[in-house]
Design a protein around this nucleic acid. Structure first.
Lengths: 338, 338
DNA sequence: TTGTAAGCGTTATCAG
DNA sequence: CTGATAACGCTTACAA
C-alpha cells in the first residue's frame, strides 16, 4: 500500500501538503489537483493506525452488549450504528455474555485506545466498577440502567412505569385478580417491574396478594413453570402480567395445555415487544421499549462527549409504551372459577 | 496513560525488555518481575495503535453484514465472535444495508488497515467486485454465496438442496399439488430454492405446474399477498413451500383469514428456522441453516488465513436441515376442493 | 538475555 | 500556503 511519502514524491510536494489535502485543509488548487491525481494513481489510502497514533483518535466507538445478537440488544446496536456511521465513525463491538470477567475484558480491550468512547449495555459489572471505568480518560455511556453518579451518561427506560402501565391496562379492563410472573428478581429490571405492578394495584385500591406472585425468570421455560405453578393451586386470577415476552410465551403455552383460552378466560400481557410477540398466538399485548431510539441517544451522547456532533439536548430517559394486540380481553365475571 | 518508556524507567530496564514481557518473550525472572510490578503500578496498557503501526496487525477482524441485527445474520455474527474472541481478537462490524455503495464504503473503511481480515455477508456487491476486493492485501471470506474464483473462502449453504428437502418432505407426506411462494428471484437464494423445488417434483415424477408458483418476496407481506393470490384462483393445492419463514408466516395469516386450517387443509413449510418459526401458530415446519456454525467456520477461515489458529480442515459447505414442527400433515384426499 | 536505535505512516508545529 | 522535522508509542533488528 502506498504511503503518504510516495504520494508526496509523485505530486512533487511535501508530505505535509498531502496530509493537508487528505484532511481538507486549504491548499493551492494546483497542488491539490496534483496530490489528488497522485493519490488516485497510487490508490493511496491513509494508514489508520498511523493517523490514530498521531491524533490519538480511533474514529471508532466501542460497544459492549450482553449478546451481539440479543433479541433486543440487536435493535439497540442498530440504533447506535445508524448514527455512528452517519458521522463517518466505526463500531467495535464485543459481547460481555453477562459475565463480569468477560465484560471487564471487553472494556479493557476496547478502551486500550481502540475506541474514542464506550457504550455499554452490560449486566454483570457492578455500578462501582462502571463508575471507576467512566472516570478514566474515555467517555462512557451506559444503556439500560440508571447510575446516580453517571446520570448524564445513562440511557434507560423507566421499568417501574412499564410495570405500572402493563398492570393498569389489565385493571382498566376490569381485572382485579392479576397474577405476576416476575423476572429474575436479582436483576433490577425485574424488581422495578414488580414495583410498578404493586403501585398500579395500590392506585386502584386493589389489595396486593403475595399468592399471585411467582418469581420466574426472563425465559420461556420460567414463564411456563410459573404459570403451571399458579394453575396447580387453582385458578383464582383472570389475568397475568409476565415480566417479559419470552416468559409470557411460556405462560401462554402452559395456559393452552391446561385448556384455558387466552384472552377469553385469562388475559396476558408481556414486556419487551420482541418480534415473537406479534407471532405468538394470540398475538401478545405487551410493553414496548424504543430500542432503536435508545441506541441513537446513546450514540449521540457518546459522539457529543468526544466533541463530534452537535450537542442539542439529548433525551436519556425513555418511557415504555403499551402495545395492544390480542391477548387481553375485558374481565368477564363468569370466567372466574376458583 | 503511561507509556512503555515510563515503565522501563521505573523497572530500570530498557523499553525493549518491557516490550518483551508484554509480548511473552523470554526475559530474566528478576527483570520480568520488576517490569510486571511497574506495569501494575502505572496501570500501563500498551497503546494498540502504536503496536499496530509497528506490526501492521490490528488484531481485529472486520465484519460487514446486511444488518448487524438481522434475524439470521445475528446468529452468524455470534458464531464469528465466539471464535474470534477466543483468539484474543476483536470485531469491527459494519452494516451494508444491502446497498452496493454502503457495502463498498464499509469494505474500504475496514480494510483501510483497521482489520486483518474481512468477513462479508453482503447482497448488493457483485461477484466481480468481491473478487477484486479479495485480491488486495487482506484475506477475505465470503458468507452466504459461492463464488467460483474464491471457492476456498466461501462459506455457504446449499439452497438448492434446501428447497429440495422442503419439497420432498411434503411429497413424502403424500402431497402432489404443492404451491411455491418463491423469494425474490433476483436474489440467488430465491432462484436456488425454486430449483430445488422443481428437482424434487421431477424426482417424484410430479409434473411441474407454473400456475402453482407465485413470485413473492422474502417478507411477511409478500407471503401474505402470494397466498391470497393463489387462493383467489381457487384452492387447487394441498401444500405450500414458502421461500422463507417470514413469507410463510404471511401465508399462514392469509390461510387463516380464508378459513383454511393448517395443517389439516393446507400444509406449509418455511425456510430459515428463525425464532418466529417456533412461535407462529401452528409452529412452522421449516428448513434450518446452521448459522452459528457458518459464522464459526468463516472466522476460522479468516484466522487461519492470517496465520492464527490451526489450519485443520474447515467445512465451508453446509447442508440445510429440515426442522419438523406442526404445520405439515399427511395428504388427505377429502381435503382437496377445487 | 539485554539495550540501542531505527523504523512504522501520520499529524502538527514552526519557520519561511 | 508550504516544507522540514519532531513527535505519537511500540516492535524489532542488530550489537553487545
Amino acid at each position: 500500500m502506498a504511503t503518504i511519502r510516495e504520494v508526496a514524491r509523485l505530486a512533487k510536494v511535501s508530505v505535509a501538503t498531502v496530509s493537508r489535502v487528505t484532511n481538507g485543509v486549504a491548499v493551492t488548487p494546483a497542488n491539490k489537483a496534483a496530490v489528488l491525481a497522485a493519490i488516485e494513481q497510487l490508490d493511496f489510502r491513509p494508514n489508520a493506525f498511523a493517523r490514530s497514533l498521531a491524533t490519538d483518535r480511533s474514529s471508532a466507538i466501542g460497544v459492549v452488549v450482553n449478546e451481539v445478537t440479543g433479541l433486543f440488544s440487536g435493535g439497540i446496536v442498530q440504533g447506535i450504528e445508524s448514527v455512528v456511521e452517519k458521522h463517518g465513525m466505526h463500531l467495535a463491538v464485543s459481547s460481555g455474555h453477562r459475565v463480569a470477567e468477560k465484560e471487564k475484558q471487553a472494556f479493557e480491550a476496547l478502551s486500550q485506545s481502540r475506541a474514542d468512547a464506550l457504550i455499554l449495555l452490560v449486566s454483570a459489572t457492578s455500578d462501582s466498577d462502571l463508575i471507576e471505568l467512566a472516570n478514566r480518560d474515555r467517555p462512557v455511556v451506559i444503556i439500560g440502567r440508571y447510575i446516580e453518579e453517571l446520570s448524564d451518561n445513562c440511557v434507560y427506560v423507566d421499568n417501574v412505569h412499564g410495570g405500572y402501565v402493563a398492570t393498569k391496562h389489565l385493571i382498566a379492563q376490569g381485572h382485579r385478580r392479576i397474577a405476576h410472573l416476575t423476572g429474575n428478581l436479582s436483576i433490577k429490571d425485574g424488581r422495578d417491574r414488580l414495583e410498578g405492578y404493586k403501585t398500579a394495584l395500590r392506585d386502584a385500591g386493589i389489595e396486593f396478594d403475595e399468592a399471585l406472585i411467582v418469581e420466574s425468570e426472563f425465559v420461556e421455560e420460567g414463564g411456563y413453570r410459573g404459570m403451571q405453578h399458579l394453575l396447580r393451586r387453582g385458578r383464582d386470577f383472570t389475568a397475568a402480567f409476565a415480566a417479559n415476552d419470552q416468559s409470557a410465551a411460556g405462560a401462554l403455552l402452559a395456559l393452552k395445555e391446561n385448556g384455558l383460552k387466552v384472552p377469553d378466560e385469562v388475559s396476558v400481557v408481556g414486556y419487551d415487544d420482541l418480534l415473537l410477540a406479534k407471532y405468538v398466538s394470540p398475538a401478545l399485548t405487551t410493553v414496548g421499549q424504543p430500542y432503536a431510539e435508545m441506541g441513537k441517544a446513546a450514540a449521540k451522547l457518546a459522539l457529543s462527549a468526544i466533541g463530534i456532533s452537535s450537542a442539542t439536548r439529548i433525551v436519556t430517559k425513555f418511557e415504555p409504551k403499551l402495545v395492544v394486540r390480542e391477548s387481553v380481553a375485558p374481565y368477564q365475571k363468569v370466567a372466574v372459577t376458583a
